[in-house]
């Protein structure tokens, strides 16, 4: 049994680790900047070199903030899905949101080839990618919500999400077949995920969406706890199942949808982090788990991003590859150690 005291210690440790990871993330990269200079750069003003200032404020800080928002948001939406579907393997993308986003982007990039030449190039700008992927997620969300109101069984929603995934994969395959290598590469790069190259306006929008999603999630803590007993029990304790399902799906979609729109589909964070957090905070109480998962997700994402930028080299690895390389072994390790995955 763990008391509030233990939780407090864990939270302090987690917050300190998060801050440390944040500074390390800002300091490492193709150019290494000493930590004290990083602190100077973000808090007071000016680092000793003008270039460092520029690198920190215009390049690394937006990337680090995106990592924190994306990691935390995806992890919390994973937790919501695992509880809603009462399935330890559920992640933020089981609703087919990333499929929707992929489809939107695929239609834009690969489909733009059809318009040819100038128009095709003009269509594929930074913001059009964000809009296409947000639109794709949103349409899938609408479909899922419509299904939610017609179907009683949450498992059916899960399967429908998976079916959206299959349909998307098929459409993308068809589009790929007819498009040229250049377009295909552009699409594949998007699917690698990317935390960098965000404008401050973009981060503001992402921040608002993440905050909204987290707010709904936190307000739903009590309902989420009730759902741990199953829908029938939850209803017998006075829970409105449909309203709760609706709210949780909205929260997940806002989180996963906006993050996918800005950073591309990022794998495994949503699936693995809730399980990691449950290892430390041995509780199922969402009032504790949601903040815990949020911080763990941000921390993991910062660490992954630090590795992805390959310190002291010119290269940056795709973030999606790093999260999968770290996430998959963690899930396997949990399974082997506990012999079963509980949620």
């Amino acid at each position: 049994m763990q008391t509030t005291q233990t939780y407090r210690v864990y939270f302090v440790v987690l917050c300190l680790s998060l801050f440390a990871a944040f500074l390390v993330n800002l300091s490492l990269g193709s150019v290494s900047i000493p930590i004290d200079e990083v602190v100077k750069g973000i808090f007071g003003g000016n680092a000793s070199k003008e270039t460092w200032n520029y690198i920190i404020i215009d390049y690394r800080l937006p990337k680090a903030i995106t990592a924190i928002l994306a990691g935390g948001g995806l992890a919390v939406s994973g937790l919501l899905m695992q509880t809603l579907f009462r399935n330890p393997l559920a992640g933020p993308f089981v609703l087919g949101l990333s499929s929707g986003a992929s489809l939107g982007v695929a239609l834009l990039i690969l489909g733009a080839g059809a318009f040819g030449g100038f128009l095709g190039t003009a269509l594929v700008s930074e913001w059009s990618l964000v809009i296409a992927s947000a639109l794709g997620s949103f349409l899938v969300l609408l479909a899922v919500l419509m299904v939610t109101f017609r179907v009683k069984d949450t498992m059916a929603i899960l399967i429908i999400g998976l079916m959206f995934g299959s349909v998307t994969a098929a459409v993308v395959a068809v589009l790929s077949y007819f498009s040229n290598a250049e377009k295909l590469q552009q699409y594949i790069f998007w699917s690698f995920g990317s935390l960098g190259n965000q404008s401050w306006e973009g981060i503001l929008i992402l921040g608002c969406c993440t905050f909204l999603g987290l707010f709904i999630a936190f307000l739903s803590s009590k309902s989420l706890n009730a759902l741990l007993l199953g829908e029938n029990y939850a209803k017998s304790m006075g829970l409105h199942i449909k309203r709760t399902t609706f709210l949780i799906i909205i929260a997940t979609s806002v989180l996963a949808g906006s993050i996918t729109a800005f950073a591309g589909p990022i794998a495994f964070v949503g699936l693995a982090v809730p399980h990691i957090a449950r290892q430390f905070f041995k509780t199922s109480n969402h009032l504790v788990l949601i903040p815990a998962v949020l911080i763990c997700g941000s921390l993991l994402m910062l660490v992954c991003d630090t590795i992805a930028q390959l310190p002291l080299s010119e290269y940056t690895l795709p973030i999606n590859a790093i999260t999968s390389l770290i996430g998959a072994p963690v899930v396997i390790w949990l399974l082997v150690r506990k012999r079963k995955l509980l949620f």
């Binding site: 009462r86 009590k222 199953g230």
Partner: peptide, 28 residues
């Protein structure tokens, strides 16, 4: 009910405390 609790990861105390949900505030 005949069905077991969906999450077996709950502690007994947590599970029994959930029975108080109709009376607790929004935070539970």
């Amino acid at each position: 009910l005949t069905e077991p609790p969906a999450s077996k990861n709950l502690s007994v105390l947590e599970l029994i405390s959930l029975g108080r949900q109709p009376y607790t505030s929004w935070m539970g």
